[in-house]
Simulated assay, not measured.
Amino acid sequence: MAVPKFKMSRARTRSRRSQWKASNADLVQVTVRGRSAAVPRRLAKAYQRGLLQIED
């Protein structure tokens, strides 16, 4: 595990953390029982198997 050699100031830590940004989930088109919807890629199989329902 990496160990810091010097103490990092609170301002420096917070400015580093503020640069982190979440990215939007990539959506894929899924057609279930004639209804089409854009869903996150990680949930596509759950929609196809019927574990999740497509809402209007």
Rank of each mutant, 00 (worst) to 15 (best):
Asp26Leu: 13
Ala25Cys: 15
Val30Thr: 00
Arg42Lys: 15
Gln53Ser: 12
Arg41Trp: 13
Val39Trp: 02
Val3Thr: 13
Leu52Asn: 06
Leu43Met: 09
Leu27Phe: 09
Arg35Gln: 10
Ser23Met: 12
Met1Cys: 13
Arg12Gln: 05
Arg10Phe: 09
Ala11Arg: 15
Arg17Leu: 15
Ala38Tyr: 02
Val28Trp: 00
Ser9Gln: 03
Gly34Ile: 01
Phe6Arg: 02
Arg10Gln: 03
Lys21Met: 13
Leu27Met: 06
Ala37Phe: 11
Lys45Cys: 10
Gln29Trp: 06
Asp56Glu: 10
Val39Asn: 01
Lys21Val: 09
Arg12Glu: 09
Val39Gly: 01
Leu52Gln: 09
Ala25Asp: 14
Met8His: 02
Tyr47Trp: 07
Leu52Met: 12
Asp56Ile: 07
Ile54Lys: 01
Arg35Gly: 15
Gly50Pro: 06
Asp56Gly: 13
Val30Arg: 00
Ile54Ala: 00
Met8Phe: 06
Arg12Cys: 06
Ser36Glu: 13
Ser23Ile: 13
Ala44Pro: 00
Ala37Ser: 11
Ala44His: 00
Met1Thr: 14
Arg42Tyr: 05
Ser9Pro: 03
Phe6Gln: 10
Arg41Val: 13
Ile54Pro: 00
Arg35Ser: 14
Trp20Asn: 13
Asn24Gly: 13
Pro4Tyr: 03
Lys45Gly: 10
Val3Tyr: 07
Lys21Leu: 05
Leu43Gln: 07
Pro4His: 04
Thr31Leu: 06
Met8Lys: 04
Lys21Asn: 14
Val28Pro: 00
Gln48Lys: 02
Phe6Tyr: 10
Gly34Gln: 04
Ala46His: 04
Gln29His: 06
Tyr47Glu: 02
Thr13Ala: 06
Arg17Asn: 14
Arg17Thr: 11
Arg10Pro: 05
Asp26His: 08
Ser18Val: 08
Lys7Glu: 10
Gln29Ser: 04
Arg14Ile: 15
Met1Trp: 06
Met8Thr: 08
Phe6Lys: 07
Val28Glu: 00
Tyr47Met: 01
Ser18Glu: 00
Ala22Asn: 07
Gly34Trp: 07
Arg16Val: 02
Ser36Arg: 08
Glu55Trp: 03
Gln53Pro: 00
Val32Asp: 00
Val32Arg: 10
Ser23Gln: 11
Arg35Phe: 07
Ala2Val: 13
Pro40Asn: 02
Asn24Ile: 14
Arg41Glu: 11
Arg10Asn: 03
Lys21Ile: 14
Phe6Asn: 10
Leu43Ser: 07
Thr13Glu: 07
Glu55Gln: 03
Arg33Gln: 09
Gly34Arg: 10
Gln29Tyr: 02
Phe6Glu: 15
Leu51Asn: 08
Gln48Trp: 01
Arg12Ser: 04
Asp26Glu: 15
Gly34His: 03
Ser15Ile: 08
Arg10Cys: 06
Gln19Phe: 12
Val28Met: 00
Arg33Lys: 08
Arg10Trp: 03
Arg16Cys: 11
Val39Thr: 01
Asp26Ser: 14
Gln19Ser: 12
Pro4Trp: 01
Thr13Tyr: 09
Leu52Glu: 14
Val28Ser: 00
Arg41Thr: 14
Arg42Ser: 14
Ser36His: 09
Ala37Ile: 05
Arg16Leu: 09
Val3Asn: 15
Lys45Phe: 08
Gln53His: 13
Gln19Tyr: 07
Arg33Thr: 01
Val30Asn: 00
Ala11Met: 11
